[in-house]
Design a protein around this nucleic acid. Sequence first.
DNA 1: TTGAAAGCGCTAACAT
DNA 2: ATGTTAGCGCTTTCAA
Lengths: 338, 338
Amino acid sequence: MITIKDIAGLAGVSKSTVSRVLTGTGYVNDETREKIEKVIKENSYEPSESARSLPKRITNTIGVVVPEIDNSFYTEVLNGISQVVDQNNFNIIYFNTNNSLAKEEKALQMLKAQRVRGVILAPAVDYSEPEATKKLKLLLEKINAPVVLLDRDIDGISLDKVVYDNFGSAFAATEALIKAGNKTVGIITGDLNLKHARGRYEGYLEAMKQYNIPVIEKYVLHGDFMADTAYSLAWKMYEQRDIPDGIISCNNRTTLGFLRATRERKMKLGREIAFVGIDHIDVLDIIDYKYSHVTRDTVEMGRATMQLLMDRIKNPLKMNTVQIVPYKLVLKGTELRK
Amino acid sequence: MITIKDIAGLAGVSKSTVSRVLTGTGYVNDETREKIEKVIKENSYEPSESARSLPKRITNTIGVVVPEIDNSFYTEVLNGISQVVDQNNFNIIYFNTNNSLAKEEKALQMLKAQRVRGVILAPAVDYSEPEATKKLKLLLEKINAPVVLLDRDIDGISLDKVVYDNFGSAFAATEALIKAGNKTVGIITGDLNLKHARGRYEGYLEAMKQYNIPVIEKYVLHGDFMADTAYSLAWKMYEQRDIPDGIISCNNRTTLGFLRATRERKMKLGREIAFVGIDHIDVLDIIDYKYSHVTRDTVEMGRATMQLLMDRIKNPLKMNTVQIVPYKLVLKGTELRK
DNA sequence: TTGAAAGCGCTAACAT
DNA sequence: ATGTTAGCGCTTTCAA
């Protein structure tokens, strides 16, 4: 493998001069520069990043940690992130934690070993216990690089954050059903141990309260954000032939489960049952399988997160900012009944 | 930032001894080891990967280059890759080329700068011209690490490869339609400038030939693997009210476009038109939106690719292997007509 | 079993 | 404008 020393030799100059053209700093005669650049080209020399970052004690690598890459939400976010990264000559070192705390800890440790320049973290778990949060804080501190929290907020941790208006999105979904004239409104919740699931549930409750609609216990289906669970819950509800006028579903997967049960039971969306989901599902959009939903611009969310990280890197002393990603209500008719 | 020197100082030993426990090589007294490990723990010291890889001139990083992360196929493959990576204490440095040759070249260059241990490359473009292939070869050679080609094969390049039986999959799809009694069979092709699109087209042609079914030009819809194009093509076909008994679609996106047109025109799949697609679409499976298709185990494909790379890293001299991923025919009834 | 010393490929003062 | 030198944080001979 060819090194800076080789280039220096071939160009008849010292390593420092080569280094100067490499880094673009300091004075170097135009002729010398050209000569050196020529030699670099000819030998397709590429300086080693490890060697470069050692004296600088800094890398150009960004760590990205996501909990579930098989969720299209994170795919889209990752897409947005990599768009911004591309423009800035950074690298992404990427981890999928599979919602496992252990994997997340390992990922953060590796990120520390890599001396990354910054980290984007979409937490694997709900850090609800102060103990766990404290431990995470310690881990993050030791990474010694700015961290931006993505999607899943953690209380009592002061960082730059890009989070969703969970409460508002569920409120809007519920409100849409109520305004469409539905007298009873149910919900398929996420795992209420998770903060964002609770936020959405509370948004639902608040809308019901404001519009004076009673919350009927049997129409509150306690799910866990998984399609299969939502499917069973919805199926059971249909089987009992006791269904609310309308129902909201708390994420893309619960919506899929619900839609499946609804298809199988041959219930007509927007006629026999009104429905508004939280999250869009791209593929269904494409095949024109319409349902009303509240959504967010996920790719933009990724871009914004990365941008926030870049800003923080450039200006380490700036105040923490929390960006609340707005929701968007998209009505396709399924919020109606008949 | 705490270094090996600090640890040595705190443990009252030399850097070399600390290094020995870090690398797990050479002799070191049990007591000394324990002492050192204790100090490491207490200070949550994590050796710098840059510094480690410099004297070793080798990293534990794997470069992964994919052309389109918004395609669920690559998401699933990436998932498989990261599963294997996790088990081996490697890191993934990740690039999305967006099907751009320029971005791919840049990615490979950065991978070289990183001195990665190996590369998984799903090419951005069809290297059909010898010139382009030659250039790529040069680039890859300079990376100086094993490369495994994923999904999109390149002629005249001798590497480990994991590719799909494109011909076979299209043959099987077509055959399924023929065996189901369809007398005329059409196809929505991919971009025929691309090798795998041609492979699939040829699979279709061969099946037609073997079963003595004439290929009717107007039923060959020349697409480009994009949903929108497939949508327009299918829409136009329906509008002209001249449709084949059955039709195959060459990837997940063309299938989406086709399904959308079919929905909008209120044509009944499996009754008014028979259909078999290449690729599965997870989400449609989940909502029980059934259609017959040929598919492959994409997550396993990722795992296999990474495994191949690991094997190559362990044994640099072994012969190149080309793994042909088998297809699987899944009949759901839409291969029929009426 | 441990330590001293050289060196990995760069950058960044400091001289000249 | 260029070269010399020291050093980044490790690993790895080589001695002891």
